[in-house]
Every structure is written in structure tokens, then in C-alpha cells.
Design a protein around this nucleic acid. Structure first.
Length: 543
RNA sequence: GCGCCCGUAGCUCAAUCGGAUAGAGCAACAGCCUUCUAAGCUGUAGGUUAGUGGUUCGAUUCCACUCGGGCGUACCA
């Protein structure tokens, strides 16, 4: 519908060149009394033309070549809105297109040939994933799905560091628990990882190697076993909610492959770094940042900025057209450094989209639960999945704007599974499937011959909502806002449930019944396709 | 102190480059199942969009300040 208006206005702009002066767009009015789509062009033009908006509106309308089979009415209303009402005959044709395209409907090839890299989770393997990681994981995977839906070829990438201080502490923690299991004296320090899973890992080493390493607690076996075990756990947790990475990138490789060294040299040659107090500083102040920052400590060790910049450089060098980073808000101070560094290297930082999502606040018994992997007072993502299941977890984490501070009350987590909107969506899909089963028994079949019979207000509302799907999907994807798709879906399900209550299929006139079957198949198609993008099951039955 | 994010109904959250009377779910109350799944539908109630000022035809949206909350602000990652 929007496309049609767009072409109408483009044609009109040949006679009314001022239409090119303003952005053209058409809104769905909140109040259906105001038509199907509405334009505010006349009001935007008042300043330029210095005329009454209603006069301008009339001038625009008189230059639109209206096809009455498509648009049934145009009105000027309010302060100067132009409201368009579409002919049901035109509206209802959408059903044919949806059924024709089936499980491909909504998906576009607009960005095919483009490569995207979505980096998310990227938790170091020091412990199980927490509920906090859940938001990051689901957001990243869903965004990847959305980008694929508009044609991108997407790599899902997990970046990790198994060589830092955290990992050394992890190894020492396991070693101490190992000695403990052997009933030997050990020095379990306060800043060690305190979770039970450390003991489990130590137990495995005892079972496999007995006391072989009792006098060699510096041995790499502790760190390496821990890393392996924990990474396996992380991967299996992610798999439970339908997430699989096709690329893992180890920070250590940046050192082994010389990426970091060559970056240091490059920055030095370009005169972008200098030495002071025994450390190497990057001239961030010349790159639009507030102050210079250290990239190599006086000990000779790099700070995190250096590998981060080197890492992002590889993403550019690997030929991605779009680079998406999903971070929690604790990273909000670090990514600007990386972007400044990337720009200094001569890359287009516009290709990088950084998504900073806010944290999930967890409350239990009315108290905020503070999470710390090291202190082991966290709630794992696995526990949450056990409690509410994959689909609720996935939907819960994308149903809200990532910029909102999300609140999660553990006490009602279980209860919420019965009240969660995701069931509402699934129910709509299951209901449709059920109706289709019964109509088959009644010898009723889909027919596209009599779509004109679908003139009930609720039927028209549904079909007009279906018209918006392709655009909603696209804007969700290019604006990185999966929650918009979720909102769209909830509205569609609500419309269907209302239709279900008001309109019957079995028992109606055959022609009408068969047109309605077409309608609900179209609804089912859109529900299914959307849920596929969200990686949520679309059940045939709720029983 | 400074930087980023947030503040909307009792609770959790929407609101289409600034658009018409700010909307849903949950909770509360009142209704609807001998006919396609009641995990549903209908209705009632619930708001000074934290506050003050500004920009304009029009502000939840943009700007300034104030208040409140989250996260940062390292030669930790």
C-alpha cells in the first residue's frame, strides 16, 4: 500500500516539484477513522510554501492520478493530514501473494551478496553462562536471523581470550580444588573462582590422572581442562536455545599471527603513538577522543585496546560489509576506543554497528540479586532454560527494546510461563492449524476466487496488518530492533483471536468459508515465518 | 566530578525520520463456553509521559537545566 502511494507522489512531483523538498512518508494512523495510511506532507510544506496546509493538501490531491479500484477515498483532516482509504478489492489481493510465496513470504534478497559478521556472547570460558549473558546471546542470534532474512550472508562469531589473568586464576582455582580432593593442603585464595563447577572439573582430573600432578600445580592441565570443560558447557547451553556459532576467534591468535605486533609498528610509523613513563600511548586526543590511552604497559604487556583494535581490523580484512558487535552496557566506554582506532587505520567505521544492550536486573524475594561469576552467586542460563524452556527464554529477551533496563523477577518466572505473550502467539498458530484440520473433514478447501467477500471490519484489519509485514521485517532488521517484530506479531495474534471470536468458518456460506480459509492460511504463514526468524516453535497443537 | 543509557497506568513494557484522543500484557472488577482449542474474547477502572523551561502548526519523542536509577570512567579484560 505504501509503495503505491510512493509512486503516486513521485508522479505528482513532476508537476509539484516542491514535493521533492521534503521527506515523503506515510503513517498508519492510530485511529482507524483516519484512514489506512496518512501523509503529513502538506503540513511539512507550510513553511516552504507559506500557505495554509489545507490548500496545499488540495493541490497535492488534485495532482494524484487515483485508481478507484485501489483507493476508495481521500480526505483532508485535522491540521492538514491527507488520509487515504484503500479499496478492499485491492487490499484482499495480498492474500494471494502471501499464499503464493508461502514460507518465503517476507524474506527479501535486498542485501544478497553482502556479508555480515555478528559477534556476540564472547564470554571468556571462566564459568557457565548466566542469565545476563542470555540477553546478549538471544539478541545477537536473532539479529543474525533478521539480517539473513533480508539477504545478508551472516557469520556468527564468538571472540574469547584464554590467555589472560582471568584464565590463570581459573587454573589456580582448579589446582587448589584438585589438592583439596586429594586431601592435601592447599591455598584456596579469596579471589579464586568459588563455584561448584570448579570442584567438578578438579574431580575429573583426579579421576583421570589420580595424584600425578600433586607436586606440579603450575601444570597447564588445570587451566586447559577447565577451559575445555567450560567451553563445552557454554556451547551446549547455547545449543539448547538454538544458538550455534560458525566461527570462534581466539584473542591469542592475534599475537601468534603477528597481528598485534604489526599494528604496534603501523601506529608507530604513522606517528599515532608515543612512549611515556615506560608505556606506549595512543594519541586518542588526535582522534577525537578526550585523552590519550595506554596500549602497551610499561611491563611490555598490551592493554585490551590493542588486541581489540587488531581484532576488528581482521574483520575488515576478512571482507565484511557489515560488522555488528553486541555488548552489554559495561562495555560502553571501550568501544569508542576501538572505533577511533579503526578509523585511524583508515577503515570506514560506519560499517561497524555497536549494539549496547542494558543489563537484566534480577530480583528474588523483592531483592536485587547481584551477579558475579567469580563469587558464584549467579543464576545460570541453564537453570533459566530448565525453568521456562527455550522459547520463553528467547522471546523474553527480544520482546523489549535492548536499550531498556529489563527487570526479571525469578519468583514469577515459572508462573510467567503461563502468562507469557509467547504462548499467545503459539496459541494463535495452533488454533489455525486446528481449524484447518476440521475444515478438511467438512470438505471445505482453500479458495482464492471469492476474496472480495472478506469485508468484515476485523477481516479488513487483519489483511491490512498483513500488508505491513514485509516492511516491519525489513525495518526490524536494518534498525537492529527485533522487538518491533515481536510487537507486530503480538498485534497479529490479537487480531486473529478477535477474528476467531467474531467470525466463523464452519457453518458459514461455502464461498465465504473458503475465502476465510485463505485468510487464516495467510495469517498462519506470517506467524510461522516470523517465529522462524525468532527461532521459536510454531506448534500444530497446544495440547 | 565526567561520559553513555534509562525514567510512560499499581507492576512489566509499547508508541512508525516530531503527528491526530499516549497504547498492550499482568494484577483488580464485571461479563462470554451444548457450535472451528476459554493458554481466548468483551467491558470497567487505572496517566500532570519524573520535574521546570525552551524550540513549533504540533513534543513521550528534539534542546537546556534539576531530581532519581543503571553502567562505566585503569599501565583489569
Amino acid at each position: 500500500m505504501k509503495e503505491y502511494l510512493q509512486t503516486l507522489f513521485n508522479q505528482a512531483s513532476e508537476k509539484l516539484p516542491f514535493l521533492n523538498e521534503i521527506p515523503l512518508f506515510f503513517n498508519v494512523p492510530q485511529d482507524e477513522e483516519h484512514g489506512d495510511l496518512s501523509s503529513n506532507s502538506a503540513m511539512l510544506l507550510t513553511k516552504i510554501l507559506r500557505k495554509n496546509p489545507k490548500q496545499i493538501a488540495e493541490e497535492i490531491i488534485s495532482n494524484l492520478k487515483i485508481d478507484e479500484n485501489i483507493i476508495s477515498k481521500i480526505e483532508i483532516a485535522g491540521a492538514g493530514f491527507i488520509n487515504f482509504y484503500f479499496n478492499p478489492k485491492f487490499v484482499n489481493k495480498k492474500i494471494e501473494a502471501i499464499i503464493d510465496q508461502g514460507d518465503k513470504f517476507g524474506f527479501s534478497k535486498e542485501f544478497s551478496g553482502k556479508k555480515a559478521n555478528v559477534e556476540f556472547v564472547s564470554a571468556n570460558p571462566t564459568g557457565p553462562l548466566t542469565v545476563g549473558h542470555g540477553r546478549n546471546a538471544v539478541l545477537g542470534d536473532t539479529l543474525a536471523n533478521l539480517l539473513e532474512a533480508i539477504g545478508y550472508s551472516v557469520d556468527r562469531e564468538y571472540y574469547f581470550n584464554n590467555a589472560g589473568r582471568q584464565m590463570r586464576v581459573l587454573g589456580a582455582s582448579v589446582a587448589a580444588r584438585y589438592l583439596e580432593k586429594l586431601n592435601l593442603p592447599n591455598d584456596f585464595k579469596e579471589d579464586y573462582y568459588q563455584g561448584e563447577y570448579i570442584k567438578d572439573i578438579a574431580q575429573k582430573i583426579v579421576e583421570k590422572y589420580s595424584d600425578t600432578f600433586k607436586d606440579d600445580i603450575e601444570n597447564e592441565i588445570f587451566k586447559n581442562t577447565a577451559e575445555e570443560e567450560i567451553f563445552d558447557d557454554i556451547k551446549s547451553t547455547l545449543k539448547r536455545i538454538g544458538i550455534e556459532f560458525n566461527q570462534f576467534y581466539n584473542e591469542d591468535d592475534l599475537y601468534k599471527n603477528g597481528n598485534v605486533d604489526s599494528l604496534i609498528k603501523f601506529l608507530e610509523e604513522k606517528n599515532l603513538s608515543y612512549k611515556k613513563d615506560g608505556a606506549v600511548w595512543l594519541k586518542f586526543s588526535e582522534l577525537g577522543q578526550e585523552v590519550d590511552k595506554v596500549i602497551v604497559k610499561s611491563t611490555g604487556e598490551p592493554t585490551y585496546r590493542l588486541p581489540d583494535i587488531a581484532y576488528h581490523k581482521t574483520k575488515f580484512d576478512r571482507g565484511y560489509d557489515l560488522i555488528v558487535d553486541i555488548f552489554g552496557s559495561d562495555h560502553n566506554a571501550t568501544y569508542t576506543d576501538v572505533l577511533a582506532g579503526i578509523e585511524a587505520l583508515g577503515y570506514e567505521k560506519e560499517k561497524v554497528k555497536v549494539i549496547i544492550h542494558q543489563f537484566v536486573t534480577i530480583t528474588q524475594g523483592g531483592q536485587v540479586v547481584k551477579m558475579s561469576t567469580r563469587k558464584a552467586n549467579f543464576i545460570t542460563l541453564d537453570e533459566l532454560i530448565d525453568e521456562v524452556g527455550k522459547d520463553v527464554v528467547r522471546y523474553f529477551f527480544i520482546m523489549r527494546n535492548y536499550s531498556s533496563h529489563m527487570n526479571f523477577d525469578l519468583d514469577i518466572a515459572k508462573k510467567q510461563s503461563d502468562e507469557n505473550p509467547v504462548f499467545y502467539l503459539k496459541y494463535a498458530h495452533a488454533r489455525i492449524t486446528s481449524i484447518l484440520r476440521l475444515t478438511q473433514d467438512q470438505q471445505l478447501n482453500i479458495s482464492l476466487e471469492n476474496l472480495d467477500l472478506l469485508i468484515e471490519p476485523i477481516e479488513q484489519k487483519i489483511i491490512k496488518h498483513l500488508h505491513r509485514f514485509e516492511e516491519e521485517l525489513k525495518t526490524s532488521a536494518i534498525n537492529f530492533e527485533p522487538h518491533k517484530l515481536a510487537n507486530y506479531l503480538e498485534n497479529l495474534a490479537a487480531l486473529f483471536h478477535k477474528f476467531y471470536t467474531e467470525c466463523r468458518i464452519i457453518g458459514s456460506d461455502k464461498n465465504l468459508a473458503e475465502a476465510r480459509i485463505a485468510l487464516i492460511i495467510a495469517v498462519k504463514t506470517v506467524l510461522k515465518n516470523s517465529l522462524t526468524i525468532l527461532s521459536i516453535e510454531a506448534p500444530e497443537s497446544m495440547y
